[in-house]
Design a protein around this nucleic acid. Structure first.
Lengths: 210, 210
DNA sequence: GTCTATAGGGGGATAGAC
DNA sequence: GTCTATCCCCCTATAGAC
């Protein structure tokens, strides 16, 4: 077996290898800056095969984009819909799961949000995200806590925004943050690991602020 | 004077009109998806003039990118370096100024952070951002508050990340947030206006959390 | 300074051999 | 299914007239 300079994707069907390569390149560069030739090279296949399997760059992109959004939202939807766990436990789960996930896939958030900015309508219409989150146990539990006076801010969207902000934003701003501090990538990731435990504490304090 | 279909940029020098148009298009689409023809059309000039004034797409982009980052950081650096204002006042100022700024320029954060991801080194090296922020009154005041036991989290980077997260992230995630809620743009902006007053309260509570 | 016309190259997609 | 060769459009950049 020939050695390649970099670790490439092997040991699956050709179609899967192209998709895996497309995921890597699209996530890193975005749609416009990605060349189908980059994907072919990353997959270790010929350019013509890409069109043979997926017809066009755009169709391949739509598949990757859909799977990316779905994979990102699925986890959140599952956690937010757990009937048995408390609100506090859900905050812990989101912080823990997403910090681990984004550490492994640091390009996913900004990729998703950049591409959504141009095509939110087309890309989101297939996903029943709205119902899954707005009618979740998370939102119901939030309302109950507000009614009992345990949470001051009555709008659950602020609550969800705050949680996601604290978890996701540092990764998106990573280049800038490393620019103004002197952290290398390892030190930055350590900082993010710390946040797994800090964010639930902070969120609890915010909930009761007035 | 001929009427144009859309409001275009007029009443300045040609060079300024091209820059203003480039700012609009680059901010909206990013470097790769922007065509020089789009910029020329937005500026109401001929494509050749763009190269006459700026030599190349990349050179024009570098100018816009530099000015964008500088404009964004300058305000922050000023606020963080004020010797007279308290830490709490600085938090209020950042929240207030940036929510207004980003409401007017909603594409700037994701544009900046997307493009920085690929070229952080080249694009940040000209800016003395590091010293301006890491040695600021803000960081010194934070350390003093920690010493006095008024703030529990000793790392000022967490503090700055949290503040920026709460302010900036909701704008970046706007398409997704509008997708899962049913807010139109006006309602979304009202939500952001609410945050001007809420964020300082939340941050104060977080500071004392343990 | 501003335009028209065009060179030159890159990138998506396909034809056709194997 | 997979490859090589190639088409052809689009985009950046420039030449040259005015």
């Amino acid at each position: 077996m020939a050695k390649s300079k970099e670790a490439k994707i092997v040991d699956t069907t050709t179609e899967e290898r192209i998709k895996a390569a497309a995921r890597v390149v699209f996530h890193k560069k975005g749609y416009a800056a990605t060349r189908t030739r980059d994907i072919a090279e990353e997959a270790g296949i010929n350019l013509a095969l890409l069109n043979y399997y997926f017809r066009s760059k755009e169709k391949l992109f739509d598949i990757i984009m859909f799977e990316t959004i779905f994979g990102f939202m699925q986890n959140m939807a599952m956690v937010l819909n757990e009937e048995k766990s408390t609100l506090e436990k859900k905050v812990e789960m989101i912080a823990f799961n997403y910090i681990d996930f984004i550490t492994k896939e640091p390009n996913v958030p900004i990729f998703m949000l950049s591409e959504l900015r141009n095509n939110a309508g087309r890309l989101l219409e297939k996903l029943p995200v709205k119902q899954l989150i707005m009618t979740s146990a998370f939102f119901r539990q939030h309302q109950e806590a507000v009614a009992k006076g345990k949470i001051t801010e009555p709008n659950p969207l602020h609550f969800l925004m705050n949680l996601l902000s604290l978890v996701v934003f540092p990764f998106i701003a990573q280049p800038l943050l490393q620019g103004i501090s002197n952290l290398n990538e390892t030190q930055f990731n350590q900082l993010m690991q710390e946040r797994k435990k800090l964010i639930p504490v902070w969120v609890k304090a915010m909930m009761k602020a007035k």
